[in-house]
Design a protein around this nucleic acid. Structure first.
Length: 495
RNA sequence: GGCGCAUUCGUCUAGCGGCCCAGGACACCGCCCUCUCAAGGCGGAGAUCGCGGGUUCGAAUCCCGCAUGCGCUACCA
């Protein structure tokens, strides 16, 4: 029997990382086992639909490279893959359950249910449906139908006994039927509730393994009961640990970036995200951190999925992203960086950006870059005009704070020697400037630091000679000249 | 409240009875490299394995209880 697993999101917004991690594990399992990965959209709650979210969910999957064998866009023999288009299946199942007396019509109004719950709460009882309509006589039922009350259908949960199932990750789980209530399976709008729809679909679509988040564990006995009532074989269950926020609560918007799209916009590489997510709740061994997709596919196993909820550690993700960025070729990094530069560089800078120029800059920031959205602030001085907005005190630093004349002389000397340079290459520039530091009796750190501020407007920047080389002769000289002039002006100006 | 699941460095984790007075990674600290910042190398600090009982020659690993956390408890998924 070939493995068939599904990722079944509901289109209620952007998919969050926990959700996508579930998709990832399903995909990994399918690929490892040579099975099929199916995407099914669970859009049975018409009130919660959010326009455009299906596209966002699919984009998220595509971004991570999680291709699906069946589902929206891909099609497949088990379609349709939107539950809203599968109503006849559910209605048939409801009919069967009604006929076999495993379900019943319930005419209770939302108001009554609300009131029942309130009373139960007041008495400190567990809030559950009181089974008011479970044993309605035919007459009573007809009477309500005559009032044109629209019923829901509830499952007739056994009043006693136990429901047990084996979870691949957690072992045997047992529930007392007595603590389960008569849950709704078909809503008054004619749409099924998750429990019914997923059971029916998983069966019809021949899903072999239901791998979903931990939060579903408590409702699994309902599903097991439904399978039994429908007289069909349940799939294998595997409930995986959830991803939680720093406070260990279920991940939500208030924890900051949670949707997969946000990570992409923040400049995380899909490779890094894949690796990081794959390691949240699963491990290859006791020491491997950087794992390629292929390695994941080759080694993935359900046995190595952990049981405890994991906090999403942004710091580690960021580190890992840096590792992946450093592994990229200059061409590849440039391609990926370009959209970010385009988005983040000041509007005053002309577009389109010069790709060959960016290509020269890329290697200079590659090992300083942890997220693609940092590219602009790391490189803006390469694109800015030569009048850089730095403070004179920054230019002078500690070394020249009381010696602006010395700084001026050094700037001049550098200008003069560079102006004569016939070849404008990093090594050449260094071969001129390093001896010059000696001649000026300045420590290289002090001398180069001065030049760095003059050329980049900041104290922390890529290596000086490479920066000058990329910037080009004219702009480098212009910046040295401007720095010297500013110094000169400040000396001449009365305090 | 009821039910369920979980509990190893701050965080992600390794560990499935002796190899563990617990290993790796991120973060943190120090040193080295060095024109700054990074990257890299080396080293350090950091976990009485939630607590209490058992079982066993021997337990982080098995069993029981407790505590704590989280999840579920909808005509949401």
């Amino acid at each position: 029997m070939t493995v068939r697993v599904r990722y079944a999101p509901s289109p209620t917004g952007e998919p969050h990382v926990g959700n996508i991690r579930t998709a990832l594990f399903n995909w990994l399992f399918a690929r490892r086992e040579g099975g099929r990965f199916i995407v099914r959209i669970e859009d049975t709650d018409q009130t919660r639909l959010v326009e455009g979210s299906v596209e966002k969910i699919l984009d998220g999957l595509r971004w991570l490279g999680l291709d699906w064998d069946e589902g929206p866009e891909a099609g497949g023999e088990y379609g349709p893959y939107f539950q809203s288009e599968r109503l006849p299946y559910y209605h048939q199942a409801v009919e069967d359950l009604l006929r076999s007396d495993d379900a019943y019509l319930c005419f209770c109004s939302p108001e009554r249910l609300e009131q029942v719950r309130a009373e139960q709460a007041a008495r400190k009882e567990p809030p559950r449906y009181d089974r008011h309509c479970r044993d309605l006589t035919d007459d009573e039922r007809r009477e309500r139908e005559a009032q044109s009350l629209i019923p829901v259908v509830r499952f007739k949960t056994p009043l006693s006994g136990q429901t047990r199932f084996n979870d691949l990750i957690r072992g045997e789980i047992v529930f007392e039927n007595a603590v389960l209530d008569d849950f709704v399976i078909l809503k008054s709008d004619g749409f099924p509730v998750y429990h019914l729809a997923s059971v029916v679909d998983d069966h019809v679509m021949e899903i072999t393994h239901v791998m979903r988040a931990d939060e579903w564990l408590p409702s699994t006995p309902r599903h097991v009961l439904l399978y039994a009532a429908l007289d069909i074989e349940p799939p294998v269950f595997a409930h995986m640990p959830m991803i939680v926020g720093p406070d260990r609560a279920k991940l939500s918007k208030r924890h900051g970036a949670v949707s997969i799209g946000e990570y992409s916009r923040q400049g995380f590489l899909q490779e890094a995200m894949f690796n990081f997510l794959g390691l949240l709740g699963w491990s290859l061994d006791d020491h491997t951190e950087i794992i390629s997709k292929q390695q994941f596919v080759e080694n993935f196993s359900l046995e190595r999925i952990g049981v405890t909820a994991a906090i999403f550690d942004m710091e580690k993700l960021t580190w890992m992203n840096g590792v992946y960025i450093r592994q990229l070729s200059a061409e590849d990094l440039t391609d990926r960086m370009l959209p970010f530069l385009d988005r983040d560089l000041p509007p005053s800078i002309d577009r389109p950006l010069d790709i060959s120029y960016v290509m020269q800059i890329t290697p200079l920031i590659q090992e300083r870059l942890k997220r693609l959205d940092e590219a602009a602030e790391l490189t803006d001085f390469f694109f800015a005009g030569d009048e850089l907005p730095y403070d004179l005190s920054l230019l002078l630093g500690k070394r020249f704070a009381e010696n602006s004349a010395g700084a001026l002389a050094a700037l001049h000397a550098a200008y003069v020697i560079l102006a004569e340079a016939s070849i404008w290459k990093s090594e050449t520039l260094e071969s001129f400037l390093r001896p010059l530091a000696d001649k000026l009796e300045l420590k290289t750190g002090d001398f180069f630091g001065l030049l760095r501020v003059a050329v980049t407007g900041r104290t922390a920047a890529p290596p000086l000679f490479q920066t000058m080389a990329a910037l080009g002769r004219d702009r480098t000289l212009a910046r040295l000249d401007i720095a010297a002039q500013r110094l000169d002006d400040s000396v001449a100006a009365p305090r």
